[in-house]
């Protein structure tokens, strides 16, 4: 934590020194102090747009994760449907979301719906594939045991395969939490009337680089907060998942 703070401070100093030495005009690269001033002065506007973007990200994450879980469960529970659904899953990722963003805005309007749809499209895939992989890789001995215990296929799915696949699902959700802001921001860049992407686009048009940087900073903070919150929640929900990074620290012998 202290190391991260020192590294961040060092970068800020480097940035400030660069701007001070080269005397770059502020509309190209504002100094950190200017960005901070913009952040404070325009706080109310930035906050409003940040709330819009945040709502889009969270809604997209929720719907995308739900849809991804549903897809993985369908694939696992219905082997015959795999042939139909797997190509669909791949096609949904073969089309770059940047390419269909204008279409989505055209269909769903300038409001929140098109941005949420974009985030869902991006989030859905990592969640579905990670969870499906986990559901496919249940320990065979465990399935044998469940079979001799007289478990129905539904019970095997819900009480053995799903819990066993939760660590895989968690990996998918971590990736999803990391990429969710991309979907929302891309949507806002393509066409919107609110959100941090919209604010950045407007600021860019008016050469207000300091506002752009301030919006970018808020977006980065929001993304990091989302990722760490997701990670913390997942860890708490799946306490049995071995974590070699954590146990490495515990095992460290003090000399």
């Amino acid at each position: 934590m202290i190391r991260a703070a020192i590294a961040g401070l060092g970068l800020l100093l480097l940035w400030h020194g660069f701007v001070w030495l080269t005397e770059v005009p502020p509309f190209l690269l504002p100094s950190p102090a200017r960005v901070a001033t913009a952040l404070v002065d325009r706080w109310d506007i930035i906050l409003g747009h940040a709330l819009t973007t945040g709502a889009e990200i969270l809604l997209g994450l929720l719907l995308g994760s739900l849809l991804g879980c549903l897809m993985a469960l369908t694939l696992a529970a219905w082997p015959a449907g795999r042939r139909w659904l797997l190509p669909l899953l791949l096609v949904s990722q073969a089309i770059p979301v940047f390419a269909i963003a204008p279409l989505l805005v055209l269909w769903l309007g300038y409001g929140m719906a098109s941005k949420v749809a974009m985030a869902v499209l991006i989030i859905f895939f990592p969640v579905a594939t990670a969870f499906h992989d986990g559901l496919r890789r249940t320990e065979p001995g465990l399935l044998d045991l469940a079979s001799t215990m007289g478990a129905s296929p539904v019970a095997v799915l819900w009480r053995v395969r799903v819990p066993a696949a939760l660590p895989s699902l968690a990996s998918g959700l971590r990736v999803a939490a990391g990429v969710a802001p991309i979907g929302a921001i891309v949507g806002e860049w393509v066409g919107s009337s609110a959100g941090l992407g919209y604010l950045m686009l407007q600021a860019n048009g008016r050469s207000q680089a300091d506002v752009m940087f301030a919006a970018l900073f808020v977006l980065a903070v929001m993304s990091l907060a989302l990722w760490f919150t997701t990670d913390r929640l997942l860890r708490a929900a799946i306490p049995w998942q071995p974590d070699s990074l954590l146990s490495e620290n515990n095992r460290k012998v003090t000399p």
């Binding site: 320990e139 001995g141 465990l142 045991l145 469940a146 215990m149 007289g150 478990a151 129905s152 019970a155 095997v156 009480r159 053995v160 819990p163 066993a164 939760l166 799946i238 049995w240």
Partner: peptide
């Protein structure tokens, strides 16, 4: 392999059969 499931405690593992049969 012992095939104990990590998401249930020891008692939960011993009663796994009843759990799976509902």
């Amino acid at each position: 392999q012992d095939l104990l499931v990590p998401w249930r405690d020891v008692l939960g593992n011993v009663t796994m059969g009843a759990h799976l049969r509902g």
